[in-house]
Simulated scan of single mutants.
Amino acid sequence: MTKYSILTLALFNLALISCNKGAQNNEESTIEKECLSEAMKSTLNMEKVTLRPIERSLTLNGYIDYNQDKTVPFNSLVDGVVTNTYFSLGDFVTKGQLLAEIKSADTNEIYSELKATEAELKVAKRELESVESMYKDGIASQKELIEAQEDVKTLNSKVAAAKSSLAIFNSRGESGVVKVVAPQSGYVVTKNVSTGMTVNAGDEPLFTIADLSDVWIMANVYAANMRHVQPNQEVKVSTLAYPDEYFAGKVTKVSQVFDTEERVLKARISMENKEMKLKPGMSADIIIQLETNEGKSLAIPNTAIIFDNNQNYVVVYKNDCEQEVRKITPVSKNNIYTYIADGIKENEMVVTTNELLIYEQLTNKL
C-alpha cells in the first residue's frame, strides 16, 4: 500500500471516531436534559432551605382522638322496637338523613292527646265566638269573656306542645313509627343498634357521629417537660402510618390536673384532617422545637437527606429539567431538621419525597 493510501485511511478513521464521539456526546446531552414526567413530578414534594435558629426537639407521645365538640352520640327518646336500619359502621352520613325506624307506643299516646286537644280547641273557639257576640249585646259579662279567651289560649298551648313532641320524635303519631335521622353530618364511629332490637329511652347511645374534618391530638406531658409546653405553641405530629410526613398543629389547651392513672398532664392539639389521614385511636408523636443558644444555620428537612457511602447528600431541584446532587456537612440535627455548614445555599429547593429515586438516576449518569 502506498503512503498516500495509508494517509487517506488514517484520515477516514479519524473522521469516523470524531463522528462517533459527537453522536455519543449528543446522546449524553439528551439524557442530561431529560425532564421530569408529569407522573413523577406529581409524587415529589420540595421544600425551601431556610436559615433557622438551631433547635433541639422534645418528643411527647400521645394519641389521636375525636374532636369532642363535633361528636354527637344519639340516645333513643322512646321505648320501642327497631324495625329498620339504613346505615353501617364507618358510613358517612349527612344531617337529616334517615338512619333507622323505631315502632313505639309512646308517640301513639301523644298523638291521641293531640287529637283530643284539637277537638276541645274547636269547641272552645265556638264558645268564645258565642261569648264575644253576647258580650257585644250586653248579655255576657267581661269575666265570662276573659274565661273563654283563657280556655282557647290554654288549649292552643297544649296543641303546640303535642306537635312539638311529635316533631322531636320525628313521628306522625298515627303509625307509631319514630324516624331516627342524623343529627349532623359526619362518620358513624359507633353503632349499637340493629333490626329487631328493643330499645329504651335513655339507654346507651344507638350510634355516634363524628365530624373528622379536624381531630384532637392528646399528648402526655410529664412533670419534667411541663415548662416546655404552652397554649398556642406550634407543634409537628408524626404517625407510624406516615413516618415521613409531619402534620402541623397548635396546642389549644393544657390540663392543670394530673391524670390519676397515667400521672401526666394532658395537652390538646387541634389539627385539620382534610385528607382523612389521621384516624382516632392511632398513636402519635408530638414534636416541639426548643431553641438553643447555638445561633442560626441553614436547615434542611430530615426527609430530604440521603445517606450513601458514609456521606450525606440532597437532591436540589432547579426546574423540571435540572436537578443536582449535593454533598452536605451536618453540624447539628433534631427530629425534623438537619443543620448544615456548606453544600447548599439559602432559598434553594430540596426534594423531600422520592429523592432517592432521582438521586440514583442522577448518580448513574455520572
Rank of each mutant, 00 (worst) to 15 (best):
L212P: 05
S270K: 10
E324C: 04
V235L: 02
E272D: 13
V325R: 02
A304N: 06
Y222Q: 12
Q311C: 12
S213P: 05
L265K: 07
L240A: 15
A267D: 06
G281Y: 04
A210Q: 01
L265N: 11
M276R: 15
K236S: 14
I217N: 02
K327G: 06
K345C: 11
K296M: 14
I269D: 00
S213Y: 03
K274V: 11
P280A: 03
I344S: 01
T292S: 08
N302P: 07
V235S: 01
V257C: 08
V235I: 05
S332W: 08
W216C: 07
M218K: 15
A241Y: 11
K274N: 10
A284D: 02
L265D: 08
E346H: 01
C321R: 05
A241P: 04
L278Y: 00
K277V: 04
V325W: 07
V264F: 04
N347L: 09
V215N: 02
Y317E: 04
I269V: 14
Q311W: 05
T329G: 01
D244M: 11
Q230W: 13
F247I: 05
I328V: 07
Y337C: 07
V257P: 05
Y246S: 09
W216Q: 09
V254H: 04
F258I: 12
M271D: 04
N319Y: 05
R263F: 11
K327P: 03
K327N: 10
R326H: 08
S332V: 01
K296V: 13
T303C: 06
S332T: 05
Y242E: 13
R263E: 12
